[in-house]
């Protein structure tokens, strides 16, 4: 049974300019022990997959259709009371910007301690556990960091703190939204090593949201490629990376590899921009930017094509 399953999930947000479709009938499954990556350009709605999965859409005026099942619980129908034990205890969450993810007005210790709230430990025991966890995440002087405020520590340390908080209660699923995007290269490697090591110790599954295909290839079993709120391609890592079926995936891979498209060409990038989410289009959403567009692409949306072994993509060109 899948640990996390999205079934035809569409997400709408009510913004000032009106109702906007962020996710368009997203379906995928994440099995226990599996690491799944969500890749795509910024603005493709990657982060919202994570937020929807963890039920963290309170800050938005959101409407979700479809079904999100986590560990047998339909998250869309769950009450706040049912959701609270899920968050933290069963789903840990790491945010893109570790500095912003920490409250600037509270000490690190206070915030880490909060993550143990679900355990009903005594204050001193919780503190001991928290300090231990900070040490495990590779913070040298947990006792010193404990009393500091976020602005007094580096972003790398911040991210370790965030990871400690996310994993405090040994969740089954870790949702990591660009955990390394804002870190220096050396720190980035350290953090990735840490996540990998902890996974071996704790055995959680991971939903990694990233645009960094290097990180993805090192860490994940399966990949979802998201374009304009739609999964255009998904499948096992090697299948998708080696035999990409969708032109968008191929473009992404080219960009990541830094290979010129043709001889003497510039560094690769995908011309054009993703469509405005509030514009409804017929046809393939990537068509306006796709080098291989034909008449049909503009008129009718392509159906999913099953390439075997769970490798599915949406494109008229095989």
């Amino acid at each position: 049974m899948a640990l996390l399953e999205f079934d035809q999930v569409s997400l709408f947000l009510d913004l000032l300019k009106g109702r906007v479709k962020i996710l368009n009938r997203v379906s995928f499954a994440l099995r226990a022990g599996e690491n799944v990556a969500v890749v795509g350009e910024s603005g493709s709605g990657k982060s919202f997959i994570g937020l929807t999965a963890a039920g963290l859409l309170q800050g938005y005026r959101a409407r979700v259709e479809g079904a999100v099942c986590f560990d047998g619980l339909n998250m869309l129908f769950a009450t706040e009371k049912e959701m609270r034990p899920v968050r933290g205890k069963k789903i840990g969450y790491i945010f893109q910007n570790p500095v912003a993810a920490l409250n600037p007005m509270l000490t690190i210790g206070f915030q880490v301690l909060e993550a143990f709230g679900g355990l009903r430990l005594s204050r001193s025991r919780a503190r001991a556990r928290a300090l231990e966890l900070l040490a495990v995440t590779g913070i040298d002087e947990p006792e010193r960091v404990w009393k500091l405020y976020p602005h007094q520590i580096s972003s790398g340390v911040c991210q370790r703190v965030v990871i400690a908080m996310a994993l405090a209660l040994h969740p089954k699923l870790l949702i990591a939204d660009e955990p390394t995007a804002l870190l220096d290269v050396t720190v980035k490697i350290q953090v990735l090593d840490l996540l990998e090591r902890l996974q071996q110790e704790m055995g959680y599954s991971c939903l990694l949201i990233s645009h960094d295909l290097g990180v993805v290839s090192a860490f994940c079993d399966r990949v979802l490629v998201l374009y304009a709120g739609e999964i255009v391609e998904q499948g096992p890592l090697d299948r998708v990376f080696d035999h990409a079926g969708h032109p968008y995936t191929r473009k992404l891979l080219q960009c990541a590899a830094g290979l010129p498209e043709q001889d003497g060409g510039d560094l690769p990038f995908i011309p054009g921009e993703p469509p405005e989410p509030h514009l409804v289009s017929t046809g393939c959403s990537f068509a306006p930017r796709c080098p291989e567009t034909v008449e049909k692409c503009l008129v009718q949306a392509p159906p999913p094509v099953d390439n075997g072994k769970g490798h599915v993509f949406r494109c008229w060109h095989k």
Binding site: E80, G88, G117
Partner: peptide, 18 residues
């Protein structure tokens, strides 16, 4: 309420009151 650390705090499983 729109800040990341609020989402983070929620993700930690804190109650709305807290």
């Amino acid at each position: 309420l729109g800040k990341d650390f609020i989402k983070m705090a929620r993700a930690k499983g804190l109650s709305d009151m807290r």
